[in-house]
């Protein structure tokens, strides 16, 4: 399997300060890689840098085997890289159809294929993008990215500002897209559990450092420790740190709030098996009574 995206020793940031340090990451064709981490971890920076919207300070990024250094940002889509930006960057003054047409490099066929993933957009084609709801806008952003037939798709915070129910319906579409087209996906997501449901592999960034990476199952085993980092307690995913693994006991319990809200039973079914076995007996807390407390801490 060839690597669509290879990030090697990347340093990137703003105003001379590296927000991402020494990042190594690859995305292969046909897989979804979730890039996880708390606010300010450098996830969006990584994506922007890959798109060429932010300069590389040190290290290298190769997209489809070619270094992105010296490539103007607007050249990337032509090479097959699509980026759904965090703010979606829709053109609110243009209609849905016009938004899609801008991305359709080749034919009407691409447009129809992209729409087939989001049939809800069909009746809205003549409407201005600015008049769509948040969920519809996100669908449009995704559809627009798909219209250009990308080989590598980067999706930034698909869930931002959306109700969990909508996110739970949107994320599985990514899986379908990858299975249908064989594209690679780099997914940045704050909803760790939802992201882990659809992803094949995951990497965790905390304060710009890669603190964990591996298969979804491996990461899911430490999901709660991961969540604790969202509340600013610093990098918690460390195999050697006993207490931090303590906190990870809550994996199964802490999924439950979001999972119980989920409409689809498959989401539950997915979440628990992947988290369950890998949480492992050695990850069990010494004192069972502290577990609910830790969970409360983590999800607050």
């Amino acid at each position: 399997m060839s690597a669509l995206l290879e990030i090697e020793g990347l340093y990137s940031g703003y105003a001379g300060v590296a927000m991402v340090r020494d990042l190594n990451l690859t995305v292969h064709a046909g897989e979804i890689v979730a890039l996880l981490g708390p606010n300010g971890a450098g996830k969006t920076t990584t994506l922007l840098t890959t798109s060429g919207l932010n300069p590389v300070m040190k290290g290298d990024i190769r997209v489809f085997g070619r270094s992105i250094r010296g490539r103007p940002a607007h050249r990337a889509p032509r090479e097959g890289l699509a980026h759904v930006l965090e703010d979606r960057s829709l053109f609110y003054q243009l209609t849905v159809a016009e938004n899609l047409r801008l991305a359709a490099a080749r034919s009407r066929g691409d447009l129809d294929r992209a729409l087939s993933y989001f049939p809800a957009l069909e009746p809205l084609l003549g409407r201005r993008a600015g008049l769509l709801s948040g969920g519809e806008q996100q669908m449009l952003a995704m559809a627009r990215a798909l219209t250009s037939k990308p080989r590598l798709l980067m999706v930034d915070e698909m869930s931002l500002g959306l109700a969990p129910v909508i996110v739970e319906r949107l994320l599985p579409v990514l899986r379908r897209i990858v299975d249908d087209t064989g594209a690679g996906v780099l997914l940045v997501e704050q909803h760790v559990h939802l992201a882990l449901e659809v992803a094949d592999r995951a990497a965790v960034l905390v304060h710009g450092d890669l603190v964990a990476s591996g298969t979804t199952a491996e990461i899911a085993g430490r999901a709660a420790a991961l969540e604790s980092t969202y509340f600013g307690a610093g990098p918690g995913v460390d195999a050697d740190a006993g207490p931090s693994v303590d906190a990870s006991t809550s994996t199964s319990t802490s999924t439950s709030p979001s999972a119980s809200r989920s409409a689809s039973p498959s989401a539950n079914a997915n979440a628990n098996p992947s988290a369950g076995p890998d949480a492992g007996p050695d990850d069990r807390p010494d004192d069972p009574e502290t577990a609910p407390e830790a969970d409360l801490e983590g999800s607050r």
């Binding site: 103007p72 990337a76 980026h83 979606r88 003054q93 243009l94």
Partner: peptide, 16 residues
Amino acid sequence: RAAAENEKGATVLGFS
């Protein structure tokens, strides 16, 4: 029209 409204959005779609 697209680029006037959202420069970044136009760039990621391949327009300078």
